[in-house]
């Protein structure tokens, strides 16, 4: 503690009253951000999520452009060019990369068979261009993933919203139905469903939706129940706001966070399920291709032509990984409680 004396040479001028300006007291020092701006800032800081986002964009662009840019299609067969290893201009000169057109024994197959063209990812046993098929397959996988997520979203919001909003007996019955559905192993339902409705993009998507929507419905219901009794909603109600306005202006903006997170996790899991189905022979039928069916086909010649399995396997892994990274990132960004 300091002694008084030290301060005695202070100027009396300094001891004039100077009460603070009242208006200034309420000034907020930091700029205020909306919820979404804040979330975006947090997402941007998450390097893994940004890497994932960039990868998704690249893979999606490839899926859209690559099959169109090539003069070959996913189903064009050319038996004279069957089972060629990958060969990419420029990269072919870097020998430790597997893009030099040589097979497992180091023989340059292109030279041996006199093939002038380059097949960047090689060809399969029917001479179909794997580059085109891989990106075409990515397109199908993405399409199925997005479609399944979208349908889940619509059914889930409707079911969960109604269940949570009306509550009481309606809710009770609707929840029992979900509980029973959830007791049934997901995959078994999907397999049975596809056995009945021949495999195809729509039937595979629907099969996944049949059990997939319950997650979304539960989350929406939980959020609706939680928000329904919050004071600001009660306040809006007492002020006579109509039900539709309550749902759209108050509930939806608040449940949108968990919905986005759930959807982001649905996409990779749908892509995975499709690949799995293809793998056990219930997926897309040839000549159509999805990443899963390509991996499955690749297995048949894994010892001699590993590229047929490895290339689509890498792409599907990157695709699912990217979606998971972005989904994780969005969850952390939207849920400030998880903030470090």
């Amino acid at each position: 503690m300091m002694a008084k004396q030290q301060y005695e040479q202070l100027s009396p001028e300094w001891f004039q009253p100077a009460p603070p300006n009242v208006g200034e007291q309420e000034k907020i020092n930091r700029p205020s951000l909306t919820f979404w701006q804040d979330a975006w800032l947090r997402l941007r800081e998450n390097k893994a999520a940004i890497v994932g986002l960039v990868m998704i964009i690249i893979l999606a662009l490839m899926a859209i452009i690559a099959p169109m840019a090539s003069d070959r299609t996913y189903k064009d067969q050319n038996l004279r060019h069957a089972k060629l290893p990958p060969k990419i201009p420029v990269l072919e000169h870097i020998h430790w990369l597997p893009f030099d057109g040589r097979d497992a024994n180091g023989v340059d197959v292109y030279k041996q068979r006199g093939v002038k063209e380059y097949y960047w990812f090689g060809t399969d046993d029917l001479g179909r261009d794997l580059w085109v098929r891989t990106w075409y397959g990515t397109r199908i996988s993405l399409y199925i993933g997005l479609l399944a997520a979208l349908i889940d979203l619509l059914i889930g919001i409707a079911y969960g919203g109604i269940s949570g909003y009306y509550g009481g007996r309606v809710d009770n019955v609707m929840q029992r139905i979900i509980e029973i559905l959830n007791g049934i192993p997901y995959l078994i339902m999907v397999i049975l469903f596809i056995l009945i409705f021949e495999p195809g993009i729509i039937s595979i998507t629907l099969a996944m939706v049949i059990t997939g929507w319950t997650t979304m419905a539960r989350i929406v219901r939980g959020q609706v129940l939680k928000l329904k009794n919050m004071e600001y909603v009660l306040a809006a109600r007492t002020l006579g706001a109509p039900t539709s306005r309550l749902i759209f202006k108050h509930l939806i903006p608040n449940v949108i966070g968990p919905i986005i997170i759930t959807t982001m996790f649905t996409i990779p899991s749908a892509i995975f399920t499709e690949a799995f189905l293809s793998f056990i022979g219930l997926g897309i039928r040839p000549p159509e291709a999805s990443l899963g069916s390509l991996v499955n086909d690749g297995y048949k010649s894994i010892q001699t032509y590993p590229h047929l399995m490895i290339i689509p396997a890498v792409v599907i892994s990157l695709l699912i990984l990217s979606f998971n990274l972005v989904a994780d990132g969005i969850r952390d960004a939207l849920d400030p409680k998880m903030r470090k």
Binding site: A48, P268, F276, Y299, I302, P306, I310, S317, N324, L325
Partner: peptide, 25 residues
């Protein structure tokens, strides 16, 4: 954390393929 995300993302049949090819073949 990174290993866990990769482990969740890479489908088991893809992983099995890599194991089979690199460790087995």
């Amino acid at each position: 954390t990174v290993i866990a995300v990769i482990g969740i993302s890479v489908p088991s049949f893809v992983l099995a393929g890599f194991l089979q090819y690199f460790i087995g073949v």
